[in-house]
Measured scan of single mutants.
Amino acid sequence: MASQGTKRSYEQMETDGERQNATEIRASVGKMIDGIGRFYIQMCTELKLSDYEGRLIQNSLTIERMVLSAFDERRNKYLEEHPSAGKDPKKTGGPIYKRVDRKWMRELVLYDKEEIRRIWRQANNGDDATAGLTHMMIWHSNLNDTTYQRTRALVRTGMDPRMCSLMQGSTLPRRSGAAGAAVKGVGTMVMELIRMIKRGINDRNFWRGENGRKTRSAYERMCNILKGKFQTAAQRAMMDQVRESRNPGNAEIEDLIFLARSALILRGSVAHKSCLPACVYGPAVASGYDFEKEGYSLVGIDPFKLLQNSQVYSLIRPNENPAHKSQLVWMACNSAAFEDLRVLSFIRGTKVSPRGKLSTRGVQIASNENMDAMESSTLELRSRYWAIRTRSGGNTNQQRASAGQISVQPAFSVQRNLPFDKPTIMAAFTGNTEGRTSDMRAEIIRMMEGAKPEEMSFQGRGVFELSDERAANPIVPSFDMSNEGSYFFGDNAEEYDN
């Protein structure tokens, strides 16, 4: 993207840094990872977990959730003011799984939030270390993106479920800051804005008074975040219109849905970061690795190297396929839920299948599930090659597409044709070009129609051997075009429920 120079890199967003050079960025990201790792080690000690239990991804998720809940100030305040039966607002906890007599047992633990905050700050040299908290939120978000298709949420806001490739980060909490905003897809931002506008339509006082002023500035800020994701002048001009509207209503909703559809071809720039579970960072720190000293990046080879040398386990339900569970977590670790499966298959070195073909449910185990038949197995999170994460949407291309997802959002900077089903997408653009945004709409449609099938995206960008740390010898991959490109292809993934 041309304006790259004016933006802070995501590592800076990730670490609240002012302008830093590459070495400083690597050190501050490393410091953040160190903090998460030290916190995780301490929690495993508190909970008396064995090494194996500490490497269980379900335990990692519970521990991450506990610290996120302990620092969720708004919710904590709300819980104190609106006490609900049987919930102690000062405590947080969740299921911890232990191996007892050759069987997995679930144990519900409860801790004072104050105590968890103390352990977290102690692991982070006394700081609140917001960057580390956001990092864990993005890992949870990436896992949700890989596990669930947001059909219901899309339909509720009037969008087409086939636009799911635009929904990265749709389950990120509001408090995820600049680093969170960077990884949100165009569809996620559109959905947040539509929800806001709908509230304004239904509630006369939404934009009024002292609160209304705050609401208005939040609305304009979200519009600017979305505008910054678009790469064409016409899309940005249309966002200006939406932002400046005196009284946002149905016309703005129409414009936003139009823009979301246009992003299936004229893709937005959305950041991709490899955020790993805390149970990967903990053992690495415990083994003596100093992330701050060595430096770390979320968008280069580092996460690949770390996963190459990590042992992570997962509980497996009786009829689940461990290899499929591994694929789910591998995609989440690489922030690749909406990437082209052919690119992923090449990088991973084994075939990556669409969601609907995987015999696996989510990673988390519900409290009512029976533990008797639970097994555990090693997650295979290694890769054959590594590639640089991208934040450009890439230019655009036609490809055989599917009944489910009709476009992709690249996660890796790797040369390819970008699949999208042009006739299906263009069919949504018939007729409606009147109104105050008509010239911009016409211009956007013209650009979409001009998108050429034979153009290559990320020209000359390749993948790298894991021994090639400096990215000196790019390998331009070859793809098996007979395979499906979309992950949520004609899909039956479970729906995400809060």
Rank of each mutant, 00 (worst) to 15 (best):
S84Y: 09
Y10I: 02
N205E: 04
N417E: 05
L47R: 05
R317H: 09
E443L: 10
R99V: 15
E220K: 14
G394A: 07
F39D: 07
S353L: 01
R174I: 14
M374G: 07
R213D: 09
H82T: 01
R361H: 10
F429N: 12
R162H: 07
V476Q: 04
G169Q: 09
P477F: 09
S141R: 12
N498G: 09
Q415V: 15
S383R: 12
R121Y: 02
K293I: 04
M159C: 06
D34V: 01
G30E: 12
V329S: 15
E210C: 13
S3C: 04
D127R: 00
M13L: 03
M66V: 14
M447D: 06
M191V: 12
G37A: 01
Q409F: 04
N202E: 14
T430N: 02
F206K: 03
S478L: 01
K90M: 06
K7L: 11
S383F: 06
G349R: 12
S69R: 09
V285S: 04
R246V: 08
M159L: 15
E244H: 10
S176P: 14
P322T: 08
E115P: 08
A442V: 09
V109W: 03
H140A: 09
G349W: 02
Y496Q: 13
K113C: 10
A472M: 13
E53I: 05
A70G: 02
N202F: 00
E455H: 13
N432F: 15
F291C: 08
D421C: 15
T433G: 02
G349F: 10
D16L: 10
V67P: 13
R55Q: 04
R361D: 10
A70Y: 09
D160V: 04
E64Q: 04
N125W: 15
T430W: 04
I25W: 06
G5R: 00
Q311P: 15
K90E: 03
G249W: 08
T437M: 10
S269N: 10
M239D: 04
P173N: 00
L259Q: 01
S274I: 10
F412M: 15
C333I: 08
D372F: 12
R74T: 02
G450I: 01
A153K: 02
V242G: 03
T130E: 07
D240Q: 15
L56A: 01
N321D: 14
A181V: 04
